[in-house]
Amino acid sequence: MRLKLVPAQTNFDFFKYAKLTFGASIVAMLLSLAVWALVGLNFGIDFRGGTTIRTQSTGAVEIGAYRDAIAPLDLGDVVISEVFDPGFAADENVAMIRIQAQDGQESVTGDTIAEVEAALQQVDPTITFPSVESVGPKVSGELIRTAMIAVAAALAAILFYIWLRFEWQFSVGAVAALFHDVILTIGVFSALQIRFDLATIAAILTIIGYSINDTVVIFDRLRENLIKYKKTPLRDVMNLSVNETLSRTLMTSGTTLLALIALLILGGDVIRGFVFAITWGVVVGTYSSVFVAKNVVLFLGVKRDWSKGNDTTGNQFADIDA
């Protein structure tokens, strides 16, 4: 009668294929880094400056004609792509035009935009411009810096918080898992050339938040079991902890993915990249919580014998249990 994603009692050995899963994670990370280095991210105007114009017309989008119309304006790199969405009406044809930041211009000129709009209206008189966004190179440089600070601050804050609540091995394990998630996300954005902009950074931070959430729940159970089963090998206690929390892990991922997939399909094209990043992050985040974070902790080892312990510096909050 009840919907159960996993049986009430599971005894999976999550370390049985540890070499394979951990190896796969490392290979995936290396691949991501390679794609990132070779292909690079498809930065949006937030990060490289320039202008994007969204066009909408009742006639079909003719990328070639648009390109020919804009070419005489001599604007350098112009990327035109058609946008598809199940939510569009039949006579709703949408394209995105991205124009690079113009050399020697600190600020954005409205004249250039007006010229482009006029040229496009020559091609298709029904064309309208639902959104026009321009970012100057000065601001885009600052946005990159802020974005990097945000991600670094998030990782540092979590490193610190987990260290405060658990032990340093746990915080290293958790942050390793987060790096894994962030790198794989960058990898998939590079490979698929999805536009990478400010919203994507917000998505990455959300992934960090979600993934740490998952990891912390497993760690929390591990901490509890380590106190309960003092003599059992660390590896077995870890397996027990993951098994005990497996149902919850999959339930939460399930509900979150359910919500995100609805948004991915129906939420419209404007936020699709953003939602895709979070959806992807929930999948890798769940995987890394189960297969990456605790492997790192196992590798680093955990101090088990608390009875004679005087090693309380830095983890005096370690065994608070609310």
Binding site: T146, Y210, I212, F219, I320
Partner: peptide, 23 residues
């Protein structure tokens, strides 16, 4: 369940605060 709930939500809340300050 409380300790796991608190830890999990505080970490996510930290992220929300960072996003608010820098975003």
């Amino acid at each position: 369940a409380l300790s796991a709930i608190i830890d999990a939500n505080i970490t996510t809340f930290i992220i929300a605060v960072i996003l608010f300050v820098l975003g």
